[in-house]
Simulated assay, not measured.
Amino acid sequence: MKKIMFNDKYSLTQAVLDGRKTMTRRVCKYDRPNETYDIVFPVFEPNDYDNDGNIVSPLNYAFGWKNDKGDFTGWNIPKYKVGEVVAIAQNYSDCGNMPDYELDEDGYPIMPKRSGFFNKMFVRADLMPHHIRITNIKIERLQDISDKDCLKEGIYKGQCGSADTHFMDAYYYKGDIQPYCTPREAFAALIDKVSGKGTWESNPYVFVYEFELVD
């Protein structure tokens, strides 16, 4: 089983567990090198389909970039597949599950520096108590996100102002009290925090994973 990580600093893991976040965007490995490159998709053969007509090739939803000289970037391949159940990565200290660590002379577990107790990057997927199921995958530029999808990404609606003047609708993400006029403005600020300053402005191609919480 695979695992997926969400940012804890901005409470995105908790947003998934609360059912407020049902979508995530992951930057594709290969962007379009320049305007001479056109998008290309795999050509599937009969053995790439199962008996029900579903594509079972690992290149399903993959795409790449190629120019008329034959230069090819390589395939952008989604990490997850529609229908796949994926473990939500959490530190062992947060989720309560732990592997069998070797004990020291006092009976305390010996945790290596790269321990899932401290860093969820190193946890085992089979020990995670919560899972999501991928329900849809699409490819788009980051800035093509809709207001509706921003809310699925964990942006939430609130208000700003005061009773002395008037209240107005605003949008926020956890970990920041700055109000934004639109969901897209809030998401743009969030993605730059999570994925690095300038991510929104660079407008990369992304895989968009929509999912549902299983447990």
Rank of each mutant, 00 (worst) to 15 (best):
Y108Q: 13
I110C: 08
I77G: 05
G107V: 09
G107D: 07
F72T: 09
E102M: 05
G83F: 12
E102L: 08
M98L: 10
G64P: 03
P109L: 06
S93Q: 13
D94T: 15
V56Y: 10
Y80R: 03
G74I: 09
P109M: 05
N119I: 00
R114P: 04
D104G: 08
E105H: 12
A87L: 05
M111G: 04
D100K: 12
Y108V: 06
N91P: 06
S115A: 08
R114W: 09
E102R: 15
S93M: 13
P99M: 11
D94Q: 15
W65E: 00
E84L: 10
V86G: 01
G74R: 11
D104L: 02
K120A: 07
N119V: 02
K120S: 13
I77H: 02
Q90L: 15
G96K: 03
I77N: 01
K81R: 15
I110G: 03
G70Y: 01
K69S: 12
I88M: 08
G96Q: 10
Y80G: 05
D71F: 05
P78F: 07
N119Q: 09
K113H: 08
F117H: 13
P109C: 11
E84Y: 07
D94G: 00
D94L: 14
I88Y: 03
E105L: 11
D94E: 15
L103Y: 09
R114H: 15
W75N: 02
F72H: 11
F118L: 10
K113W: 08
E105F: 10
P58R: 10
N119F: 13
T73F: 01
E105A: 14
C95D: 07
N67Q: 01
M98H: 12
V85Q: 11
K113M: 11
K66Y: 09
R114K: 15
V56N: 02
K120M: 12
Y101R: 00
C95M: 02
G64Q: 00
F117K: 14
Y108G: 05
A62C: 06
C95G: 10
F118Y: 15
D71A: 11
S115M: 01
K69E: 11
S115N: 04
I88D: 02
F72N: 05
D71E: 15
D106G: 13
G74W: 04
K113G: 03
N97S: 12
F63W: 11
Y108W: 13
D94M: 13
P109G: 07
D106F: 08
G107H: 07
S115K: 00
P99D: 07
M98Y: 08
F72M: 03
W75V: 03
